[in-house]
Simulated scan of single mutants.
Amino acid sequence: MPVIDAAFFPLIVTNRPTEYPYAAPPAGTDMSALRLRPASEVRSGDLVLGSYDGPVSPSKLGTANQSAAAFTALPLPMHGAICLDGETPYWERDEPIMVIPREYRPTTPYAVGDRVERTILFTPPQPVMNRYTAGEAVAVIQRGTVTAVDDNSIAVQWLGDWLNSDDPGTGMRRVDPARIDRERTRTGFAVGDYATMPGRTSTGVVLEQWPRWLDGRPMVRVWWPADHPSDNDRGSHGLYLAHRIEHAVPAAPAA
């Protein structure tokens, strides 16, 4: 076979997708560090690129087709599966996952004022129509703000008060600004925003949001302070259509 010179052509990247479901790994990611791990061994802080459908043979892994938006793992076991994103019990425990291990990722130290999130198990005391079943634990995201940083620890004030919750999840991550923008575009709120309602003197905090099962209209869950406990006592944490409440202090950091 004759030897011929290889032809090389310049490649100019004009756009890097940053939002789900086409988010690319962050610029500067060392793709040569890509590894295959079962979902049960993915660690908090690993960058998940999706599941791997081929034979599990890392020594022969020549190509890696990204099957999910790149995201920082917050793994939490739930109902026999793994919530790699902290919320969705989608991945089977032995399912091969493509990751960039956290030790190979560029990192920026946390600073006071950073908005962060973690995953916890929440056990609803009462059922919420087409959302939660009473007594059945579900994975939810809880957000907070970094209040202090020293050499050995980080202090975080977590927003809201999730009743009957445990915190078996490990680690935390910065809140993706694109996700906050997407939430505000959809409902007018982001999880962690402060809100009020006509006739109330107190300010609550938005704990989560989702489309209503009946017509897709945006719902938000608000935790009100002790001077307005009625919603919280019912176990609803204040479920309202987004248009019924309004911003009090948009994007305000935790006090």
Score class of each variant (00 low, 15 high):
F9I: 11
V175A: 13
D53N: 09
G160V: 07
L84D: 07
P124N: 03
L241T: 06
I100S: 03
L159M: 13
R184L: 09
P75V: 04
A242I: 00
E136F: 05
N65G: 15
E41T: 04
A255W: 03
A73F: 09
Y110T: 00
A81E: 12
R186E: 13
Y110C: 01
T187L: 01
T18E: 12
A69R: 11
P198H: 13
M1Y: 13
W224T: 01
D161E: 14
P253S: 06
L49V: 03
E246I: 01
P177C: 03
R200I: 02
L84W: 10
R35P: 00
V206E: 03
R179D: 12
G169Y: 01
G135N: 03
R118K: 15
D114I: 08
R16C: 09
T203L: 04
A7W: 15
V140L: 06
R244W: 13
T196P: 07
T72P: 00
P211H: 02
D193V: 04
E208D: 15
Y104P: 00
E103A: 10
D94V: 00
Q157K: 14
P125K: 15
P198C: 02
V112M: 08
Y132M: 04
P177E: 03
N130H: 15
V220I: 13
L239I: 14
I12E: 14
P253Y: 06
I4Y: 15
P109R: 03
L84S: 08
D193Q: 06
A155M: 05
A148D: 11
